[in-house]
Design a protein around this nucleic acid. Structure first.
Length: 429
RNA sequence: GGGUCGGUGCCCGAGUGGCCAAAGGGAACGGGCUGUAAACCCGUCGGCAUUGCCUUCGGAGGUUCAAAUCCUCCCCGGCCCA
C-alpha cells in the first residue's frame, strides 16, 4: 500500500469507518507523510478479547502503511471505568490487579503490532505513567476549564445513565476528561495526531480532539469503526459470558478457531475484511467461492485460520484445524494416536490415573468436574438425559460411567456435549 | 439533610404471609431439521440427591406454625425538595 490515501479507502471498504472528524482532511494529512496513531484499551481483565482485536488490527494496518502506532493500555482510565456502553456503574479494580492486567495485555498487543527497534516503530504506553502524578487542582484548571458540563451531559452514554435508576458516579462521569487528557498528552509528547476506536468511543475521541484544539490550537483527527453486531444487525449482548479471549488460557486456540468457524454467512465477508490482513480482492474472491457452495464453509475455514494464526501463531491454527477435522469428521474410534494427541492438546482435558478409572467414573461427575464441559452436575445430568452427551462418539445413557474399557489406544476417552463442545480424559499409562 | 419510590434468579421483570425455587420475556444450553449456518419446532434453564433435601428474592435481626411478601435497624439507588 504505497499510496497513503489508499489506506483510508481500504479501511472504508472494510467497513471500518463509522464516524470521522473529517475524512478528506485526514486523507490529506496521511498523504503528507507518516503520522502517529493511537488506540487504547482498558485493562478490565487480564486478557483482551476479539472486540479489541479490531483496534489492534487497525493499528497494524496503519503500521503496514508506514505510520507509527501507539498502543495504550489504560492503567489510569481502568481505575476509573468507562461509562460508555455500560448501563451500570463498574466495580473498581484494585491497583495490583490492574498492574498485572496491563502486563498481560501488553504481551498480547505485541503479537499483533511490531514493537521492534526500527524507525517508526510502534510504542506501547500506559496512561498511568503520566496520570498518576497529575495534581487535582492542575487537572481542574488545565483540563476541566476547557470543557463545559453542558457538553459532557449531552453525551449519549451519560444521558442514558442519567435516565437509568442507577445513575452515574462523578468518577465515571470524569472518564471522558481523562481520555481527552490522554490524547492531549500523547499529542504533546509523542506527536500523536489521530485516535481510533470503536464507535462507543466516539464521544471520548472527540473530547480529545476538542481539547487539543483549545489548549494547543493543534489539529487532531479521530475516527471510529462500527461496533460488532449480532448477525441480524441487533446489538451484541456483550455482558453475556460468550466473550472470546485472546489469552489461550481463557479461550483455547481450538475454541478460538471454532468461534470463527461458526460465523454466520451474513457476517463472514465483514469479518474477513475486519479481522484478517487479507487484501480486499482476496476477501472478495473467498466470498465469491463461498457463495457458490456455502455448505462447504470455505470462507469460515479461511477466516478461522487467518485469525487464529494472527493471534496464536500459524502452528496453533493448523493444529486447531486438524483437531476440528477429527472432531467433525471421521468416526472417533478410527482416529490414530497421533490425531487424538492433537485433539487432547486443543480441548479441555482431565488427567486421571488407571486407579481412578478402574472402578469407573460417573459421566455427569466427570463433565462437571472443574467445569470441564458443564457448569454443574445437574446441568451435566440434564444434558445426558436429553441425549446430548457422548463417549467416543457413542451417545451416552443416563447414569453411565466411563472406565478402562472406554480407553482409546489405552490412553484417551473423548467426551462430547452437544454438537461442538468436547473434552478429553487422559489416562497416563 | 427532608419527603417519596425502589433494590427479586445471567439480564429485564411479575409476585406483596402459605398453592414460591418464585409468572412472563430475553440470553444461554440440549434435541430435531441443516452446511459445525440462518429460520423454525420441541425441551431445559439455583444446587445436591433415585419420590426428597439444601441455599436464594440488598444486609442483619425480629414477628409467625409459615416471610420474597409484615416489623426494626443498616447499606445502596431513583425522583422531588433543601
Amino acid at each position: 500500500m504505497t499510496d497513503p490515501a489508499a489506506l483510508i479507502d481500504d479501511l472504508d471498504a472494510r467497513g471500518l469507518v463509522q464516524d470521522c472528524t473529517d475524512l478528506d482532511q485526514l486523507r490529506a494529512r496521511l498523504a503528507e507523510g507518516p503520522t502517529t496513531v493511537y488506540y487504547g484499551c482498558d485493562p478490565t481483565a487480564d486478557s483482551l478479547h476479539v472486540g479489541n482485536l479490531i483496534g489492534l488490527l487497525v493499528l497494524r494496518r496503519f503500521q503496514d502503511a508506514g505510520h507509527r502506532p501507539v498502543a495504550l493500555a489504560g492503567g489510569a482510565t481502568g481505575m476509573v471505568g468507562d461509562p460508555s456502553g455500560r448501563s451500570e456503574e463498574r466495580n473498581l479494580l484494585d491497583e495490583a490487579t490492574l498492574a498485572s492486567n496491563v502486563a498481560a495485555i501488553k504481551a498480547q498487543i505485541g503479537r499483533i503490532i511490531d514493537f521492534s527497534d526500527q524507525p517508526g516503530a510502534a510504542v506501547l504506553v500506559d496512561n498511568l505513567d503520566w496520570t498518576r502524578e497529575v495534581r487535582l487542582l492542575d487537572f481542574l484548571r488545565d483540563v476541566g476549564k476547557h470543557v463545559t458540563v453542558n457538553q459532557m451531559l449531552a453525551r449519549e452514554s451519560v444521558k442514558t445513565r442519567l435516565q437509568s435508576e442507577h445513575g452515574i458516579s462523578f468518577t465515571e462521569f470524569s472518564y471522558m476528561l481523562l481520555q481527552a487528557h490522554d490524547f492531549l498528552w500523547l499529542h504533546e509528547h509523542l506527536d500523536v495526531e489521530l485516535q481510533v476506536g470503536g464507535s462507543d468511543q466516539w464521544g471520548n475521541i472527540l473530547g480529545g480532539v476538542d481539547l487539543i484544539r483549545r489548549v494547543r490550537g493543534g489539529v487532531a483527527h479521530g475516527f471510529s469503526w462500527p461496533l460488532l453486531t449480532a448477525p441480524d444487525g441487533t446489538k451484541l449482548g456483550k455482558t453475556t459470558g460468550a466473550r472470546i479471549w485472546l489469552d489461550p488460557a481463557r479461550t483455547s486456540p481450538y475454541r478460538f478457531y471454532q468461534h470463527w468457524i461458526s460465523t454466520d454467512d451474513r457476517q463472514v465477508r465483514q469479518f474477513l475484511a475486519q479481522f484478517t490482513l487479507l487484501s480486499l480482492p482476496e476477501v472478495e474472491a473467498i466470498v465469491a467461492e463461498h457463495g457458490a457452495s456455502p455448505e462447504r464453509r470455505q470462507a469460515q475455514r479461511r477466516l478461522a485460520h487467518e485469525v487464529t494464526a494472527l493471534v496464536h501463531g500459524e502452528q496453533a491454527a493448523r493444529d486447531a484445524a486438524a483437531a476440528s477435522a477429527i472432531l467433525f469428521g471421521a468416526p472417533v474410534a478410527d482416529a490414530t494416536p497421533a490425531a487424538l494427541g492433537l485433539v487432547a492438546a486443543e480441548v479441555p482435558t482431565r488427567q486421571v490415573t488407571r486407579g481412578e478409572l478402574e472402578p469407573g467414573l460417573d459421566l455427569a461427575e466427570l463433565m462437571a468436574h472443574d467445569g470441564l464441559l458443564s457448569a454443574s452436575k445437574s446441568e451435566a445430568r440434564r444434558t445426558i438425559v436429553q441425549g446430548g452427551a457422548s463417549i467416543n462418539g457413542v451417545p451416552a445413557q443416563s447414569g453411565v460411567s466411563v472406565g478402562l474399557a472406554d480407553l482409546l489406544h489405552d490412553r484417551w476417552i473423548l467426551i462430547r456435549r452437544g454438537k461442538k463442545a468436547y473434552a478429553m480424559v487422559v489416562c497416563e499409562p
